[in-house]
Design a protein around this nucleic acid. Structure first.
Lengths: 121, 121
DNA sequence: GTCAGCAGCTACCTCTAGGTAAGCGCTTAC
DNA sequence: GTAAGCGCTTACCTAGAGGTAGCTGCTGAC
């Protein structure tokens, strides 16, 4: 880590805090992934994320919308439909999601040992 | 995001959760960065991270140690010294830290507008 | 009529992260 | 002797994250 010299400490920490302030909690990135994979309806998203509740989902969706990461669209009709989609800006989070996902895979492998390639559930 | 098709949803989410379970909270990555930059002593780390308390720092350091990300070394002497250093395994988190840091920078720039390059504090 | 689905919202609770303040035993410096 | 630094620890508190349950008004299927 050549760029991380003592003097640059604060300048490395502040952006980290900025990022963590936005994507904190355990749900936001998961929700982004799920919407990206094509689940655009509220109930659909809810069912795609194990053990999330509708209350939490509603709150997180509002947060994500406030941060300009997703867009909520209401299709009027007699059956009112709501769809969520990720905004282009959310794509900038891809490196974060990839890095986290990769590390999660490695970490699980390290904890389970090399003999546990694909654990169920 | 070509790899993210609906069918692969769960397989993308689980690693994400695994990772978030380990580096949750707003402090752990910051602490790793600070130790990496050469601050190895408790008080030093504490002073390097704005507004962290010794209580929280002590707890987070224990967590990081339990996750095999840092090592605590006690140098006996009459003045007992404790040093913390990141373990090689923690380097695997570099991509995560980089991605987060970069995104934090971009995000701040986007929020502040292009006219706010380097804000004070 | 009844049940299910849609997209949430409300009220209630618990649990944890985290903040505040103080103090411990030790050592060195003044 | 007093103050300050070291590496913490304890006790107390608040804020918010998150879980549980049930409900709304609407529509469509049986």
């Amino acid at each position: 880590m050549e760029f991380l010299t003592p003097g640059h400490c604060i300048s490395s920490i502040r952006p980290l805090r900025d990022a963590l302030d936005v994507i904190n909690g355990k749900w936001k990135l998961q929700i982004l992934v799920v919407i990206t994979t094509g689940h655009q309806r509220f109930r659909e998203i809810e069912r795609s994320i194990p053990s999330i509740s509708s209350k939490v989902l509603a709150k997180e969706l509002k947060d994500l919308e406030a941060h300009k990461l997703i867009k909520r669209t209401v299709q009027e009709g007699p059956p009112v439909l709501v769809t969520y989609e990720v905004l282009p800006y959310a794509d900038s989070l891809d490196p974060v999601i990839f890095a986290l996902r990769d590390w999660g895979l490695k970490h699980r492998a390290m904890i389970m040992g090399p003999d546990a390639g694909a654990s169920p559930a």
